[in-house]
Amino acid sequence: MNAFIAIVRRDLLLAARRKSEVFTALFFFMIVASLFPLGIGAETSLLRRIAPGVLWVAALLAAMLSLNRMFAADHQDGTLEQMALSPTPLALLVSGKVFAHWLTSGLPLVLLAPVLGLQFDLSPRSLGILMISLLLGTPLLSLIGAIGAALTLGVRGGGVLLSLLVLPLYIPALIFGAGAVEADMAGLGAGGHLSLLGALLALAAFFAPWAATAALRIALE
């Protein structure tokens, strides 16, 4: 457990030394979300209707931007080898890295989303549901993304390949995440969607570090 905390602290420290990377993803999120009203038109009722989907897709793409950096630096400078040789199980260390990735790329999106939601004229209640859905959904994105990042480590054209592998797997998160806000707006209640999202998160938290670890061991060989 100490090694888990150590790796989270190290990655947070590294992110703090390289703040620009965190902010690039956030700006990307803002810009993509702002493009939609410009492309579609500023009619309020339309914007309100598309807001959950647009914000979720933008968040999903922004979270993916930073994915290929999750293991790449560690792979290059040999840290990954040291992690694999640590007496602590590699899956636990990988979970630490995923958690740190979420703290630096997922959590900021959750905090920024309501501000962007205001651009789309969402009600305070919908903004709350949006935040909850992102809070449950972004860790899921980091977990599934870790598998893709590990698989494409050191592979030619890894960045594009990563999105090809990971985006189809993101679809359930998108459906339940955006669906939660839409269902609530339609007066159907968001509970079902949110609990399914939570169930997926629990499932991924259990299996994804294991799969990512297996993929990392292949990349190390």
Partner: peptide, 12 residues
């Protein structure tokens, strides 16, 4: 999971 979620989305 994807099939189920798409079906859910479809009915909604």
């Amino acid at each position: 999971i994807i099939y189920f979620s798409v079906k859910w989305w479809n009915t909604l």
